[in-house]
Design a protein around this nucleic acid. Sequence first.
DNA 1: TAAAACCTTCGAGTGCACTCGAAGCAAGCG
DNA 2: CGCTTGCTTCGAGTGCACTCGAAGGTTTTA
Lengths: 159, 159
Amino acid sequence: METTAEAAETGTSTRTGDCAAPPHRHRRPDGQDNYTISEVVAFTGLTAHTLRWYERIGLMPHIDRSHTGQRRYSNRDLNWLDLVGKLRLTGMPVADMVRYAELVREGDDTYIARFELLEATRRDVKARIAELQDTLAVLDHKISFYADAGRALASEGSR
Amino acid sequence: METTAEAAETGTSTRTGDCAAPPHRHRRPDGQDNYTISEVVAFTGLTAHTLRWYERIGLMPHIDRSHTGQRRYSNRDLNWLDLVGKLRLTGMPVADMVRYAELVREGDDTYIARFELLEATRRDVKARIAELQDTLAVLDHKISFYADAGRALASEGSR
DNA sequence: TAAAACCTTCGAGTGCACTCGAAGCAAGCG
DNA sequence: CGCTTGCTTCGAGTGCACTCGAAGGTTTTA
């Protein structure tokens, strides 16, 4: 059985109406979700090298193995990789994600630490969004400037 | 005299009511805007090394020099550095910014190319904002999950 | 049964964006 | 006058996140 916090992290209880995931061929239902590494490569776009590297540096939970030692990824592993991918997009350093993964492995005692880490991350993400919106405004301003200049040039130089 | 497109790039015509710039001690008005490199360091947070490097790789317009050869940055150089800083935040590679700077140097003929480059960049920035908002939603979901779990733990284990 | 996929460990290479130091000299300021 | 700041060129180093290849083995699958 898993703890509440683990459920929060690994996403076992993901609602099935999740329909906005782009490059997934198809996941199998829980119970048949023992993907080979090459399937995960296809799902995530990461290389097998990178997946093993993630494991080495402690960025993954312990991955199940077949009776002969081959990796068998579960839906929750895939969900975790989705989260990692999202956090990567925010610019979070891998080291921080590893720290977070450690907290998850350490169990419910680290609940507060994780909560705080999530909130700090949220603040960062919000700040980054604000920065980008600022940049977007500059870009829009410039673009409209160019559009005006373009119209001027077009009306004068249309020989 | 400068071309319209240069005015768009270098921001000479920046409205003076620009009050949201954080770590600027104070700019001097146009005409007295001949900053030393160390002043620009203070303004931008970049190192002198990095400023010279930007110049070497073609990321800067040609910087004025004093009669003895020292760099004298103008307000428009500062504006350009602001833009570069913003674009850097969007994750735009330096090589792309150099390309853009080249177009600016090449003059009004490159107007269309620059316009398209700006629009492509805007699309990228919008996409990045969307990704981040997606991530934010995941984070919020997780955080509220944790908050609920926290209340449950608090009410049961509050001895 | 042969090819394809998987495993391990090891270490080196890549690309980006700086980042730093050193040498050796010129200019500015207090 | 001396200290600070600036200039040049050169080349090496850093940190991050992969990325790749090889060697030498086992397992799966068509």
